[in-house]
């Protein structure tokens, strides 16, 4: 294991994961993994299906607790506070923007989709909401396409537009961390490239956890990349090292070069 040849260790970690073990019933999904995420980096997380990537994201924003029968051991700290004992779980979730693999349009208009999170957080003023909606849709590169029909249902948009809408929505509560779970799975290549450009710009403002099924996407975007396999963190290192001819583990080399997965 080669977990700590990290060039940013001078900045404080924003997420610290320590010996995290997760089980669904008796079935282990994560086997005691530990790593840190640093401020304003894009951390790519790659690995074949079923390796626990989605589970990891759900632990961080505590949506795993909606699945019955799960046990979580170890600690996940966000800004130094353990997420499992945090007092205000709603406030915690607002610090994290989450984009799921398939776009989930809330049954609301485009405007209300983006305004939902600010409203739940107590923003009432119309002008303020207008401003948030415009900013987020601009950031997600969707504003120009929908600015004339903000009141149509979000689910009426095309798949790629809906995924950008979910990104706008994930940005609407000004998160510190943006988590994307295989966002490109239902999106055409051109939209994927547009979203990747969006992410490059967002890097200056927030930390991004990019779970991806496209190995090359991690190579294009990530500062560091983690490779997960069957609930284990095989390796986490700078993207250059992971994609070099001699990463820390043979399994990483094989996966990255398409021998399996």
């Amino acid at each position: 294991m080669n977990t700590n040849s990290d060039r940013r260790s001078h900045t404080a970690p924003i997420i610290e994961i320590n010996d995290l073990t997760v089980r669904y019933g008796d079935k282990p999904a994560l086997n005691g993994i530990s790593f840190d995420v640093y401020k304003n980096e894009i951390l790519g997380i790659i690995g074949p299906a079923q390796s626990g990537k989605t589970t990891l994201l759900k632990v961080i924003n505590r949506t795993l607790e909606f699945t019955a029968g799960t046990t979580v051991e170890g600690s996940v700290k966000l800004d130094g506070v353990d997420v499992n004992t945090v007092g205000d779980v709603y406030g915690l979730r607002r610090k994290i923007g989450m984009v799921l693999p398939l776009p989930v349009g809330l049954p609301l208009s485009i405007y209300d989709n983006v305004a939902f999170a600010p409203r739940t957080a107590g923003v009432r003023a119309k002008s303020e909401l207008d401003e948030i909606v415009e900013r987020c849709l601009q950031q997600a590169a969707l504003w120009d396409e929908v600015k004339d029909r903000l009141n149509t249902l979000g689910t009426k948009l095309s798949g790629g537009q809906q995924q950008r809408l979910t990104i706008a929505r994930a940005l609407s509560h000004q998160p510190e961390i943006l988590c994307l779970d295989e966002f490109s799975i239902a999106v055409d290549p051109i939209t994927t490239m547009r979203i990747e450009d969006v992410l490059k710009e967002l890097r200056a403002e927030m930390t991004i956890l990019l779970v991806t099924n496209l190995v090359q996407q991690a190579k294009r975007l990530a500062n560091r990349t983690a490779f997960m396999l069957n609930g284990d963190l095989v390796e986490i290192d700078t993207t250059d090292v992971i994609f070099s001819d001699s990463p820390g583990s043979q399994a990483t080399y094989d996966y990255v070069n398409g021998t399996f997965g």
């Binding site: 924003n61 989450m98 799921l100 939902f116």
Partner: peptide, 14 residues
């Protein structure tokens, strides 16, 4: 759908 609930919770809704 469960993803709808989860998305709403993920946005900080109670």
């Amino acid at each position: 759908p469960i993803p709808i609930r989860e998305s709403a919770y993920a946005l900080g809704a109670n």
